[in-house]
Structures are given as structure tokens and as C-alpha cells.
């Protein structure tokens, strides 16, 4: 079947924060993720900076290279061009925001090199 986005990115999806509060996916703010990670005993927020965005040989996919965490580890991921990432202070962003909004009705900005996205890591990761 055609690759598709997880349902929780669809506008109106109910998201539960670590303190139990319920919010709609389109209303989430940077603070919601930061506070939830602070409450979580297992998860920590990592900053992942977009270093490159290349088109993939796979149609409708892009390859995004991130510098992840303190050590700026180089990680490349291949994602659907409409896959939304949460950018600090900016909100949902994707390589093809029009497509994201068309498919998910989720307001979305353009993901660009230099954007710092929220990612997760385990707190007890040595």
C-alpha cells in the first residue's frame, strides 16, 4: 500500500502531554514538549539541526541530514516530503508544507536548513 502518515498528525488529533493535559496536535507549542520531557522519567529532548535536504530516488520522499544532540551526530533519514517535524519556536514544518496541509489539514511551515527540530533521546542513554 502507499506509504502514509501516522494518524496522530491529522488536524484535530488529541495528544496527551506527560502531565495528562489533552491538546489538539495543531495547538501544540514548543513548551508542551519541553515540559513533558521534564516530567518524563525516561525521555529527554534533543535538538536536531537540519544540515541538508536532498530529494530521494524514491518518489515523494526526501533525505534529511540532521546534526543530533550535544555531539552533533550526523543522522540521515528518508521521509515522505509531507512528514512534519516540530521546529523549536516555529511549530510543524515539512519539506512540502502545502502537501502536509492538503493531506492532514495541519498548518505547516517550510522546513529549511538550519531549522532546529525537536527529537527525543533516552535519559539514561550513556
Amino acid at each position: 500500500s502507499a506509504p502514509s502518515l501516522p494518524p496522530y498528525f491529522t488536524k484535530g488529533s488529541i495528544i496527551q502531554l506527560a502531565d495528562g493535559e489533552l491538546k489538539r496536535v495543531e495547538d501544540l507549542k514548543t513548551e508542551d514538549f519541553i515540559q513533558s520531557a521534564e516530567i518524563s522519567s525516561e525521555l529527554k529532548i534533543d535538538s536536531s539541526t537540519v544540515e541538508r535536504i536532498d530529494s530521494s530516488h524514491t518518489p515523494h520522499f526526501a533525505i534529511i541530514q540532521f546534526a543530533v544532540g550535544e555531539h552533533r551526530s550526523q543522522v540521515s533519514v528518508e521521509v515522505l516530503v509531507e512528514y512534519p517535524f516540530f521546529v523549536f519556536g516555529q511549530g510543524w514544518s515539512s519539506c512540502c508544507p502545502d502537501r502536509t496541509t492538503q493531506l492532514l489539514e495541519l498548518p505547516c511551515a517550510k522546513l529549511s536548513v538550519g531549522d532546529v527540530c525537536i527529537s527525543l533521546t533516552l535519559k539514561n542513554l550513556k
Binding site: 501516522p6 494518524p7 496522530y8 498528525f9 488529533s13 488529541i14 495528544i15 496527551q16 502531554l17 506527560a18 489533552l22 496536535v25 501544540l28 508542551d32 514538549f33 513533558s36 518524563s40 525521555l43 534533543d46 536536531s48 540532521f66 543530533v68 544532540g69 555531539h71 551526530s73 550526523q74 543522522v75 540521515s76 533519514v77 517535524f85 516540530f86 527540530c117 525537536i118 527529537s119 527525543l120 533521546t121 533516552l122 542513554l125
Partner: peptide, 19 residues
């Protein structure tokens, strides 16, 4: 109505996935 946990929305990009 399904409720999704906050941490499902953002990725783990740890080095275990580095290329």
C-alpha cells in the same frame, strides 16, 4: 476518540540510526 501520547509525534534520531 483516540488519544495519542506526546512522544509519538517527535522522532528518536539517535546515532543508532546514523547512516
Amino acid at each position: 476518540v483516540p488519544v495519542f501520547p506526546w512522544h509519538s509525534l517527535v522522532p528518536f534520531l539517535e546515532t543508532s540510526q546514523s547512516n
